[in-house]
Amino acid sequence: MTRQRILITGASSGLGAGMAREFARKGRDLALCARRIENLEALRSELLAAHPGITVAVRGLDVDDHTTVPEVFEELRAELGGLDRVIVNAGIGKGARIGTGRADANLATATTNFVSALAQAEAAMGIFRQQQTGHLVLISSMSAVRGLPGKKAAYAASKAGVTALGEGLAIELRGTPIKVTTVQPGYIATDMSGRAGDTKLLAPLDKGVASMVAAIEREGVRASVPEWPWRVLGAVMPLLPRGIMARMS
């Protein structure tokens, strides 16, 4: 099945903008959301110039404004004549060691990455249940595989929540026309995640995005990307002694 009409949140930069470019190359129609509307307008102009046969709709959206999320999704659904796939991508990477006086950073990360992802999933699933078809994609992280120490603790916990949400929905909806995929990227060179990882494991943005889009198109329940080395590391990380994990702080 070709998912022609795709909504992507957090599409103004990084992985979201990269996925928009990749799907545009495939001739898909796009609904793009983010807080920075000026970036979305520039991306829309770029995509239409390169691919004049597609439709690109944009809306400013702060996913932490949970009452606005379903309103914007419905507006974009109406503009595109339906939604076949929603990619819940918006997220932040703030963080501090818990108990060091920066609760604001950790609470913001937990809210945007998990609670707001849940709000987006609610809006998308409402549409898909009404349509009786659709593909929900949750962008999690390889940090969800195991709790991480230090300033990464809240981020890893928030992404573990996203992965658990995707797993629960995939179990519930198995055998139905509504598919759910959780994508767990490793270190990919973006403004946010590129700073967080070992440079030896850092994938270029184009390679990382291509692997993400390929995984999304396969519509499996869960994917670690790029597949090498993250599929192997995903199996190994839960087995590592805590002393080794402590070095990741």
Rank of each mutant, 00 (worst) to 15 (best):
M1C: 14
T2N: 14
R3S: 06
S13A: 14
S13M: 08
G14R: 11
A17E: 12
A17V: 00
A20F: 13
R28C: 12
A31G: 15
A34K: 13
A34H: 14
A34L: 08
S45W: 03
S45T: 07
L48G: 03
A50K: 13
P52C: 01
I54K: 07
T55H: 10
A57N: 02
V58E: 06
D65L: 04
E71M: 10
V72M: 12
E74L: 15
R77W: 05
R77M: 04
G81W: 03
G82Q: 12
L83G: 13
R85S: 13
V86N: 01
I87L: 05
N89D: 08
N89Y: 09
G91H: 06
G91A: 12
I92Q: 10
G93N: 03
K94W: 09
R97M: 08
G99Y: 13
T100S: 13
R102D: 06
L107K: 01
A108K: 13
T109N: 04
T111E: 04
S116N: 02
A123F: 04
A124Q: 00
M125R: 00
M125T: 00
Q130T: 15
H135F: 08
L136A: 01
V137M: 04
S140K: 01
S140F: 10
A144W: 00
R146F: 02
G150P: 10
K151Y: 15
A153T: 07
A154C: 11
Y155V: 02
K159E: 06
G166M: 06
E167R: 15
A170F: 08
A170I: 02
I171T: 06
E172N: 01
L173E: 03
R174Y: 00
G175T: 08
T176Q: 14
T176L: 15
P177F: 15
I178A: 09
T181N: 10
T181A: 12
T182N: 09
T182C: 06
Q184N: 03
A189N: 09
A189L: 08
G194F: 05
D198G: 06
L205S: 03
D206E: 12
G208D: 08
R218Q: 11
R218C: 03
V221R: 12
R222P: 03
R222F: 05
R222A: 05
E227S: 15
R231P: 08
V232K: 03
